[in-house]
Amino acid sequence: MFMKTTARLLLCALVLGISFCSRTRNTRNTPYKNNEEPRRVISLVPSLTEIAYALDAEDRLVGVTTYCDYPAEVKEKQKVGDFLSPDPERLRVLRPDLILLTTPTQAQLAEDLKAAGFRIAVFTDPRNLAGVFTQIQALADTLKVSDRGKELVDSLKSELKGIEKGKELSAYIELSEEPLISVGGGSYLTDALEHIGLVNIFSDLSQGYPVIDPEEVLVRSPEVILLLYPNASRTNVLHRIGWSGIPAVSNGAVFDSLPIDELMRPGPRLIRGVAVTDSLIKHAR
């Protein structure tokens, strides 16, 4: 029926996008080639919007997506729609000299906008922490504020170094309860959490955010469980039928009040999110 077809198409788009993450080998990182400083920038990527603010370059931003919600000041920026299909009218009206996108999530959109005559800058979705830092620097370079970029990256790196890596624990990260969605090797989160000693039990999966069979969690027997979604309930997880044999459950190492917003965006707040997560877990040990 009509609804199912569209739903399937959307799911296909998501799956394709996510699976591309794992298969893409060439990193398309096309920095803005013009020598001029871009003055009217539209960001179609929430993480890039955050980075722009962190670089104190937000005055260049003339448009953002409806998903861009941090920091609070971004409310005042013009919204151009969502990150997969922004409104071309609104894009044009803002007369941008550069549009920011990422690959492969927005690969098709990038092609479309380029064909429509917009100047675009495409960044790669980061697959690890190094990628996050690279992206920050790349954006800084594009906006011609390379120095501030280096500053930001250095401070983040030292913040990261400051976190004492505890004993290594296997971890299961849950992004959704129904269906069970976890984090795979293709996501930057795996790398980020490894820095605080949490080894993702699904790091062998090349996808970023795979749907998993609950029994896999039982087999892989994690020592820590992180619930990264709103309204997550620790008690529910502790009571799941068949899960009481998992070390994380029998030790009560299930965490539900985590800094989701910071962790779920590969931007400047990620490190802080990691740090907060680390202290929460250390507390419980």
Partner: peptide
């Protein structure tokens, strides 16, 4: 994703 998944149907449900 959750809504789309629901529309697809699944028996991989976790029970309490």
């Amino acid at each position: 994703a959750q809504i789309i998944y629901f529309l697809m149907g699944s028996t991989k449900v976790v029970f309490t």
